[in-house]
Amino acid sequence: MKKTLFSFIMLALILVVSACGSSSEDQASEDTQDESSESTEDTRVIEHEMGETEITGQPEKVVALEFSFVDNLASLGVSPVGIADDDDSERIIEPIREKIGDYTSVGTRKQPSLEVISSLQPDLIIADMKRHKDIYDQLSDIAPTIILPSLAADYEGIISSFETVSKAMGMEEKGEEVLADHKAKMEELRAQVPEDEERTVLPAVVADSGYFAHNMESYTGSLLESIGLKNAIQSGDERYNKINLEQVVEFNPDVMFHMVAGDQTVVDEWENNELYQDISAVENGEVHEVDRNMWSRFRGLISSEKILEDAINYLYEE
């Protein structure tokens, strides 16, 4: 049947197509049989954004398609075999790079290479809701896949993603321990912030093309809020906003954390302007340049602790 339809288009290609078409069905059914026969012991069902996924045993080869999940795995003491690192290992922050050792890059987070992922023969794939929803079926066919929020998540969302990851890894107890440690650490950090702290903070990515402010609902913003550092932007529908000098002046933050992207940025120009000099943060010398990978791209437990350590260091121990 397929063959007759195809012959309308081109005689030559049919053979190839029909050959693979039929064999693909065979193989697919074999695959599912394999999986069902294996699932005898220690199988758990993980609920995630795209439904439920069955995972058996403790996954050994894990592929992480967002940096959050690399952080989560590193916190659990697991080294992922494949990471979507935008083909730039520098993007993985130092403390985590040390922990995980060697891995294979699977391309960009936007369009990770499915071929490389499958060649790694993973047991578990962790992917992001915003970026990878559309390829969930393909990923699931390669290995059990869970889809969690990262790109669009705030700090709370990052914590709950971590809990799901540790369940999926069959390391719930270890996960609870890590999380307890993390929470203790966060408490400790919170304790360093005085009760009467009233300064407002503004984390922002500064680039040549503009000043992109992270508001109170963004990951970095909500993280800083969780230890009592109020974000200067408490409004707006979007978590990341391109704003100009006038708006920075209007929000008048007392502390600014600049995640610098590129050699030249808009702030270089602003520095010549009186208005910029009058912003509370600038007047008080509270403008701090921080690492963009750590502060914005990573969104995990280890990076959260590091960000707050950074912040507290800048704010109270100079």
Binding site: C20, S24, Q27, L114, E115, S118, I142
Partner: peptide, 8 residues
């Protein structure tokens, strides 16, 4: 697997 699921 790669031929069948991605390349073809």
């Amino acid at each position: 697997y790669i031929i069948e699921n991605f390349r073809l």
